[in-house]
Design a protein around this nucleic acid. Structure first.
Lengths: 167, 167
DNA sequence: CGTGAAAACGTGACGCA
DNA sequence: TGCGTCACGTTTTCACG
């Protein structure tokens, strides 16, 4: 089990700011959280080594790059055995249309978020990459009308409320 | 109206690299795509103004900040009227546990991805923030065993027109 | 779109509470 | 032990060809 890392209020502030703008300079970061730039650098380096910070990612508007339609595919993989679901997961992850993949409890084993050009492109994807596969028992397609990325993962005002469990 | 922007191979290369590491320096970017650093800066500035680049975001390991459990909530909002779904969306977006929110076709109107500490926390969230609301007709909770963020949004080898028949 | 220069920044070493 | 001050190498960024 992954365990929580002890995070100072300073760490939380840094994470919160970097979530809104990952290219914030250490100088601005330092001014915002009230410490020296070198301290910020030290904190960020430590957070990255601790695995709290996984990376910095660019957010792109899918519609602007010819992927104006998004959908969710609920997929049943039957039989649900390791030797089948492993390759299935890898194949789905390798699709350029895939954006996210969830392994879930419940009757629908997997949920795949895909971004395509249009409905014809979606049909092609479902037929060619999913229903044509022998291990795929069922696919249910739902279009995404609208999609919101919710705010920062850290609670906005919880500087210090975080459980700093010693073990 | 959202429209695809004409993207050079250079633009696509830049986007692809920045998606893997949003803090890549313009110098490294320039060396990777084969243009001058100032040109890279110009391209990125233009892409940001065109709305292709939405922002730079830090990726954080939820488990490391006390959010080791994730779930998907399928929510029916009835009646499905604007005056009800507007506030519902805003309320869900404001929850610190919310990570993403989808408005979908099909019987389940909304899908909410949440990150919580444990099952007790999840139960509290479902009861207090969802089933207690009058407009929420039904909530179905599915735990997320595993979650994959899929590769770059741009097709890996499509240096050219982004409208390309993949095979 | 590339070149070059100036300003700003990242990034360590060192000293202090 | 952790933080701040300082200095240097690098990067960003702009005007110009």
């Amino acid at each position: 089990m992954v365990e929580s890392v002890a995070l100072d209020p300073v760490d939380l502030d840094i994470l919160r700011i970097l979530q809104n703008d990952g290219r914030t300079t250490y100088k601005d970061l330092a001014a915002a959280v009230g410490v020296a730039p070198s301290t910020c650098l030290d904190r960020v380096t430590r957070l990255r080594r601790a695995g709290v910070i996984l990376g910095y990612q660019l957010r792109i508007d899918p519609a602007k790059v010819g992927r104006g339609l998004q959908a969710l595919l609920s997929v049943q993989v039957r039989p649900h055995r390791r030797d089948l679901i492993g390759p299935f997961v890898e194949r789905v992850r390798a699709l350029p249309e895939s954006r996210a993949l969830f392994h879930l409890t419940g009757p629908d084993d997997y949920l795949v978020q895909v971004a395509v050009a249009d409905t014809a492109d979606l049909q092609r994807l479902v037929l060619d990459a999913f229903t044509s596969q022998p291990e795929v028992a069922r696919v249910e397609t739902r279009l995404i009308f609208q999609h919101w990325d919710c705010g920062p993962l850290l609670p906005p005002g919880a500087t210090g409320q975080h459980r700093q469990n010693g073990g």
